[in-house]
Structure formats: C-alpha cells, structure tokens
C-alpha cells in the first residue's frame, strides 16, 4: 500500500462526495412543472369556453378578462405611470425595490421578440403557476406564482388566452438588479421547496361565499404577497397570514387586514374595493389604488366574497417568524 494509492483513494472519495453533492443540488433545485394531464385538461377546457366568445365565463365563473383583473397582472406589468387606458399594454419596466435587490417587471405583451408572443400555452401556464421560464429557469417570487399555483388551471388557461389578445409592445425587458446568492436562479429551486405551498392557508372554508373569497384572495388577487410578513429568506409566514408587514420599499407598514387590524364592515370592505373609498372617505393610495383599479372591474358578488373571507379570518394570529411549511 503506497502513499500514492491512499492519496488516489481519498481523491476518489472526495470526487464521489462532490458528485453526490452536485447530484443532490441538481435534484433539489430541479424545476417541477405542471403535469401533461393538468395542462391538456386546462387548455382543452379553456378552448371550449373561448368557443363561446372572449367574455364567456369558465367553470369557476370568471372570464379570461376577469381572471386578468382579479390576478392584478396590469398592476406590475403595465409600464410605470401608465394611464388607466394604457394598462392593457403589458410593456413592463416597473421597478420593485426589495431587501434582496431590485426586480424589474418584464414585458409580457404578445410581442414575439420582447414579450411572450412566441411562447406555447404550456410554457405560459408553467410560468404563471410554477414560476418556470420556457428555458426551464426558476423565476423569482416577486412574480406571485406561489399564489397563482393555487388557481384552477382552467382559469389560468383562460388568462393565457386573454394575454394573447392584448396589444403588443416592443420595449425590451430589463434585467433585475440583485446580488449573490439570489442572482443564481437555480438556487430558487430550493426556495420553492421551502416556501411554495399550494395548500389553502385557510384550510376550512365551509361557506360557499367564504370559499369563493378564499379562491380570489389566495389564488388570484395575491393579497398575501404584501399583507403577510416574510422571513429572512423572503418566505411567507403562513402563521401570520394577512396580519400586516413592513413595506418592502422600507417606508411605513402594509396594514393588518385580519379582523384584528381592520374593523371595517363587510359592506365597507366591498365598497372600498369597488370605489377606493375608506369608511372615512379617504381614498386608496399607492399600490392599493392600482389594486382597486383592477378589482373594481369584478362583479360586486366577488368583492363581497373577498370581504366575507377577510372577516372570517382568525383575529390576532401572531407571526411565528418562520415561513417554512
């Protein structure tokens, strides 16, 4: 047994460990797209609905336009400062400062080069519901795919059809400005494993109206993305659901909208989402004004469902500071 052979053996073990480590990393960070059955079922359902015209509601009761409004796509993807009339033009460019860096909303208009015009339906579905790019890279959760992943795939298929009908814009998307380790997209696979949880946060919603509100809030309107605190890695703290959070821009707090923090009646909440008026007749400001801009287009029954859901939340849920599931 010479020293050379021992050295070779140790080297092989090291290489082996490295290979196992890389393999584990590869497995843990691998994207997990929608299944073929989920995709084909949803796309076929959407196609059948669209045959009745663009405004036809799908099985969930929402049309593609209404899914678009409820999901608030234009709030982030319209050009910064776009007039309401220009908001169907999803040219991107809006900047979002966060503790992890600045994210820039991309162009998702149907332009074949700058936007999503050349993507397949399946690629769009996986982008929206699983945060996976057509090239298989992970998106950052500034894009609320963790929320949209709870949606009925048939609704997202209607949304995809709606996006394709919006005006094209050739403005190129700008790169995000983020630092290590978040600049390595592959790492977001681990983030997804830790923090993306497609189960409902409110497990029991027996009343149909509350279940409807839960669908709108937890799967489309993504209220929780701003109104719920996050842990140090940016994972949502489900134990403190909708109980308010620091503003990621660093200024002020985003309010608690559980009954502990929001004493408004259901009618007050529905009216606020319809008109932007608070019960004191102040008006929605900042990002919330854009949320109202979108949600006010939904039928009043949907806004009342959101209100009923919010009023049904447990009051006084305390944050655990632990966003892991």
């Amino acid at each position: 047994m010479g020293a050379g052979r021992r050295g070779l053996g140790a080297g092989l073990v090291m290489l082996g460990l490295l290979a196992v480590g890389l393999g584990a990393y590869w497995l843990l960070t691998r994207p997990a797209p929608l299944s073929g059955a989920q995709l084909s079922g949803a796309l076929a359902a959407a196609e059948a609905v669209e045959a009745g015209g663009a405004a036809t509601p799908g099985a969930s009761g929402l049309s593609g336009q209404q899914v678009f409004d409820a999901a608030g796509c234009a709030s982030c993807h319209a050009a910064p400062g776009a007039e309401p009339a220009d908001r169907p033009v999803l040219a991107g460019g809006k900047r979002f400062a966060t503790p992890f860096g600045t994210f820039v909303a991309p162009n998702i208009s149907p332009d074949p080069k700058a936007g999503i015009g050349a993507w397949t339906d399946a690629q769009l579905m996986n982008a929206i519901m699983r945060g996976i790019s057509p090239g298989g890279a992970h998106y950052y959760p500034a894009f609320p795919y963790a929320t949209y992943g709870r949606a009925d795939p048939a609704d997202i298929a209607l949304l995809v059809a709606h996006l394709r009908g919006l005006p094209a814009d050739a403005t190129p998307s700008q790169p995000h400005e983020i630092g290590f380790p978040f600049n390595i997209r592959r790492n977001m696979g681990i983030w997804k494993r830790l923090f993306v949880d497609h189960d409902w946060v409110v497990a029991n919603a027996a009343e149909p109206q509350i279940a409807r509100g839960r669908y709108l809030v937890e799967a489309l309107a993504h209220c929780g993305e701003c109104h719920t605190p996050r842990n140090a890695l940016g994972g949502i703290d489900r134990g403190a659901w909708l109980s308010g959070a620091p503003n990621p821009t660093g200024k002020g707090r985003i309010p608690d909208i559980t009954p502990r923090g929001l004493s408004w009646s259901e009618a007050d909440i529905a009216n606020y989402l319809k008109t932007g008026f608070t019960p004191e007749y102040d008006t929605a400001g900042a990002e919330m004004a854009e949320v109202v801009e979108n949600l006010s287009k939904l039928p009043e029954t949907e806004l009342k469902a959101i209100a009923a859901y919010l009023k049904s939340l447990p009051a006084g849920s305390e944050g655990t500071g632990d966003g892991a599931k």
Partner: peptide
C-alpha cells in the same frame, strides 16, 4: 368619483 380622488392621491400624496 372614487377614481378621480385616487387620480390625484395616487401620484401626488405621500403614502402613510
């Protein structure tokens, strides 16, 4: 009316 209030508050009023 709500939209027109927001039309001024959104761009010209500092968030709380």
């Amino acid at each position: 009316v709500g939209k027109s209030c927001g039309g001024c508050h959104k761009p010209f009023r500092k968030p709380e």
